[in-house]
Design a protein around this nucleic acid. Structure first.
Length: 896
RNA sequence: AGGCACGUACGUCAAUGGUAGACGGCUUCCCUUACAAGGAAGAGGUUGGGGGUUCGAGUCCCUCCGUGCCUACCA
């Protein structure tokens, strides 16, 4: 057998995925058990424009770990992949391409443009689906979905029509967030508030029929051209005398009133506020309250309108600002300008400053839907957020303060709103144009040109992808899904809306649990972003360290934010190599052996200590793994795997079983030791597989005896793969605390000898004699039985065990667990003073520990109030220390 | 402006109120036939500061400092 000394991830990553995919292992149909429990996840659909970034790799790792785990546990498992059409991003991308070609979407026209987007999508969209294969993601590609496909579009129309018919969708004229660059309306969630240092301008407005002026402060002087009132707080005595007076608004020929409104904070600025209902959300509200006219002075391109007056019409908003300020100064009405820090709304995508505009849009009334979600949380505590703190509150608080959702967008790429207008302006909402014609009684219909917010379709994702509105078998089988795994920044945009729509249309929660992942930050603790250029490309990491090592690194992140640390990946790359070489050892000595689960099915006294211990550790680890995964404790799961494999399996078990395994002569004992080793390796690989799919499959395929019989019964008949083998569940019955204790004593003995070798500077090649005095018969038995292994591991020429230690004076000594003593004769090598010091140091450590414990015991409050069990523990430990100390003291005296 | 997290070894992170750990890095020694991407032995901490509750606090409470994130209609 020819196995290289180093694990080559690329080699292993090449073949297996294709075979898994082509064999249909990712599809739930591979499961032949009609009564199998179901596990399903839908992927948060990545944008069609996107390519794989660390956030995806992170989420996908969690999803794949769970999916593979559940599949191995015999669940009918579906991880459904798909892509989001990402309205604005995609449209912008194609618009840019057109610009390069010297044309534009307007020139092309709507139909041609959409064709062009599809063409782009088919040629270069969804890069991520290729990259996901590299990750090893076990998604069912046969069920892949795209939000713009006909089936999902039908679901969107169904959603729209039903909500409209119930009055939950309406068309209205309101102030909205408008992006002058993208030329579309945006929802509140697509706007980000960024701090900005700007100016606060104090403008004086003359009061008609008097010499008085009233001063207002504003950050946006240009909007004064659209002012229709000045407001003060009704309680503000400073302005009581001018309430109801009229202002002659400078630069215009309009007169506007001074009104009173609670909204005005007398403490801020001058206590008087200019009111521009057409261009400010607050002023809009105030305008509605006071029935003020709306004078539109800024257009959708953020240029001033004709209503702004001849001097301003056509000017850009910032030019207009400058001009207004100059004019006020010229008129002597500019009181002052001060520096001012405030936050400004920008388009999340293009960072253009949002212009609040009054516009006719489609909205969704959220209260009744919101109540469905809040009710679900109150009644059933669903979805269950992991971690619960703080996300359950974040989610709930947001829902409680929810406002209506602007769902229309002035784009071409997306689901066109299924609303048509008759020549007389009547609105007809229908599932198809045919239905609309029938309803309207005319064929002369114009469809609303707007499309729906991308999230409108995403909100249906968990059930639209399974066939809704049809009652499909998939929907019945896989809905509600088991868990949603996502980043925290879309809890509002997506998670909450899925819950609301799920409850509304299916009457069920869309998922039981929501696992919110941490964020992978850069080495400086900054979020990775395209604009900052600080992102780490997961594909580069795959190339450098392998997919499996990267997956372990990411899984370990769990739900806490973590700075990217390449050293960590390197250490898991080393771990992969360790696995490789451990398997290599097992395979090099596998002649005449094969996997045989019978060999680890019982744990009785006929087995050697190291075997009983290993079986115990295996079962403990399996139980812990199952628990960790059930709790979504990925960090813990990775730690368990790492230490189980490296410490327990490699460092101790292989070393202890090695003597039997590499024996020259063929014997039943050798065959059994080899087979048991292979069997435990098989179990270890299965435990690892959900995290490290490639290396485990690569190795498992080579193990003698790895075949159909090891598959989970639900996959009987499938061609063998570790991904269909059953996941070790672990059994309490096979945990052997006696073996663990005996092994602990053995490990203690070995460590002590090694410590002596190291501190006494004994050459690695030099053999030493190891003398053990163990008063306890059981312990003598343990050490005697393991003599050969111990000798091998500590490079001893002799290991002798007796009840009483009888050793030459010139020995290095130690006290062991269970009152045993150890001596390593070192004739001529030992410096007695130095040895005494070494033992004194050890005694000192014990003394320090004893001091703490004694302090506790001598505190009457502790003895009285601490649990008796705890008190007992302390005094037991104290006794141990006392015994060891006296033994050490004797050793020291014998040297003096 | 409010709200919520977080602060533990040189770095990245763990620790149901019960002796503070892991991995990497560091020091010393070893290419001992699975693995130098390895092995062995070590060093390294008043858990951001201060107060409180408790027999006992990294963990619970208060406060200060620092860092993030989210929400918000102060012109």
């Amino acid at each position: 057998m020819d196995i290289p000394k180093q694990y080559d991830p690329k080699q292993a990553e090449q073949h297996h995925y294709k075979r898994w995919e082509q064999s249909g292992y990712f599809a739930p149909e591979i499961n032949r058990d009609p009564n199998a429990p179901v596990f399903s996840i839908v992927i948060p659909p990545p944008n069609v424009t996107g390519s794989l970034h660390m956030g995806h790799a992170l989420q996908h790792t969690f999803m794949d770990v769970l999916t593979r785990f559940k599949r191995m546990r015999g669940f009918r498992t579906l991880w459904l992949p798909g892509i989001d059409h990402a309205g604005i991003s995609t449209q912008l991308m194609v618009v840019r391409a057109l610009k390069k070609e010297g044309t534009s979407r307007q020139e092309l026209g709507r139909e041609k443009f959409i064709e062009r987007v599809w063409q782009w999508k088919n040629e270069s969209g969804g890069q991520i689906t290729i990259q996901m294969r590299r990750e090893g993601a076990s998604v069912d590609w046969s069920r892949e979905k795209f939000t713009m496909n006909e089936d999902l579009s039908r679901a969107v129309r169904e959603e729209f029509v039903r909500l409209y018919e119930e009055g939950l969708i309406y068309r209205g004229n309101r102030i909205v967030n408008w992006c002058p660059n993208d030329q579309t309306v945006l929802s509140d969630l697509e706007v980000e508030k960024l701090p900005e240092s700007g100016k606060l301008y104090y403008l004086q407005y003359p009061i008609k029929g008097s010499d008085e002026r009233i001063t207002v402060a504003t950050t946006r002087p240009e909007t004064m051209l659209g002012d229709t009132a000045v407001a003060v707080n009704p309680e503000d005595s400073r302005y009581a005398n001018v309430l109801g007076a009229t202002i002659s608004l400078p630069l215009t020929n309009r007169d506007i009133p001074i009104i009173a409104d609670e909204f005005v904070d007398p403490e801020f600025g001058t206590g008087a506020v200019k009111v521009t209902p057409a261009h400010d959300p607050n002023d809009y509200e105030m305008g509605v309250r006071h029935n003020l006219p709306q004078v539109v002075v800024i257009d959708p391109y953020a240029k001033l309108t004709a209503d702004a007056g001849s001097g301003f019409a056509g000017l850009d908003r910032y030019k207009a600002r400058q001009k207004v300020v100059e004019e006020f100064e010229r008129l002597g009405l500019l009181e002052k300008v001060v520096d001012y820090e405030f936050s400004i709304s920008k388009c999340e995508r293009c960072k253009t400053v949002i212009e609040p505009l009054i516009s006719t849009q489609w909205f969704m009334r959220m209260e009744p839907l919101r109540d469905l979600a809040l009710d679900l949380m109150r009644r059933k505590r669903m979805p269950r957020f992991v971690p619960e703190v703080p996300y359950e509150n974040v989610y709930t608080n947001w829902l409680e303060n929810l406002r209506d959702w602007t769902i229309s967008r002035q784009l071409w790429w997306g689901h066109q709103i299924p609303a048509w207008y008759t020549p007389t302006g009547e609105v007809v909402v229908a599932r198809s144009v045919e239905e609309a014609r029938e309803q309207a009684g005319t064929a002369e219909l114009t469809q609303d040109p707007d499309v729906l917010d991308t999230w409108f379709s995403s909100a249906l994702w968990p059930f639209s992808t399974l066939g809704w509105p049809d009652e499909t078998q998939d929907l019945k089988t896989f809905y509600p899904t088991s868990v949603l795994i996502t980043a925290r920044d879309i809890i509002f945009l997506w998670v909450s809306r899925m819950v609301m729509m799920g409850m509304k249309f299916t009457g069920r929660e869309p998922f039981d649990d929501v696992y919110i992942t941490g964020t992978v930050l850069d080495a400086q603790g900054q979020r990775m972003s395209k604009t900052k250029m600080n992102g780490i490309d997961p594909l580069d990491v795959f190339d450098k360290y392998g997919v499996d090592a990267t997956r372990l690194t990411l899984a370990q992140v769990g739900s806490t934010d973590t700075r990217w640390n390449e050293k960590q990946v390197e250490s898991y790359r080393n771990f992969a190599n360790k696995i490789w070489n451990a398997a290599r050892f097992c395979l090099l000595y596998s002649e005449g052996a094969s996997i045989n689960p019978e060999l680890i099915r019982a744990n009785d006294a006929s087995l050697a200590l190291h075997d009983r211990w290993m079986i115990s550790r295996l079962n403990k680890t399996a139980l812990d793994m199952n628990r960790a995964l059930a709790d979504y404790d990925f960090h813990q799961a990775v730690q368990l795997l790492y230490h189980f494999f490296w410490d327990d399996f490699c460092d101790w078990y292989i070393e202890l079983t090695k003597a039997d395994v590499i024996a020259e002569t063929n014997s039943p004992e050798r065959a059994e030791a080899r087979s048991r080793l292979l069997t435990i390796l098989d179990q270890a690989l299965r435990l690892l597989h959900p995290f490290m799919p490639y290396i485990t499959e690569e190795l498992w395929q080579r193990l003698p005896g790895a075949g159909e019989t090891l598959l989970h019964p639900a996959y009987a008949g499938a061609s063998p793969s570790i991904m269909l083998a059953s996941y070790p569940e672990g059994s309490e019955r096979l945990i052997d605390s006696g073996a663990e204790a005996e092994m602990a004593a053995t490990i203690d003995l070995i460590s002590r000898v090694r410590n002596i070798r190291s501190e006494m500077n004994i050459k690695p090649g030099e053999r030493v004699r190891v003398l053990i005095g163990a008063p306890e018969e059981k312990l003598r038995h343990v050490f005697t039985a393991a003599k050969d292994q111990i000798a091998r591991i500590v490079r001893a020429s002799e290991v002798s065990v007796s009840a009483q230690l009888d050793s030459p004076r010139a020995s290095a000594r130690a006290v062991l667990i269970g009152g045993a003593e150890l001596a390593v004769p070192l004739e001529g090598l030992i410096d007695f003073q130095q040895e005494i010091q070494r033992l004194e140091r050890e005694k000192e450590k014990l003394r320090a520990e004893a001091a703490k414990l004694e302090a506790q015991l001598s505190n009457p409050n502790f003895v009285e109030r601490a649990p008796a069990e705890r008190v007992q523990e302390v005094s037991t430990r104290l006794n141990e220390i006392a015994q060891r100390t006296s033994q050490l003291q004797q050793l020291i005296e014998s040297l003096q």
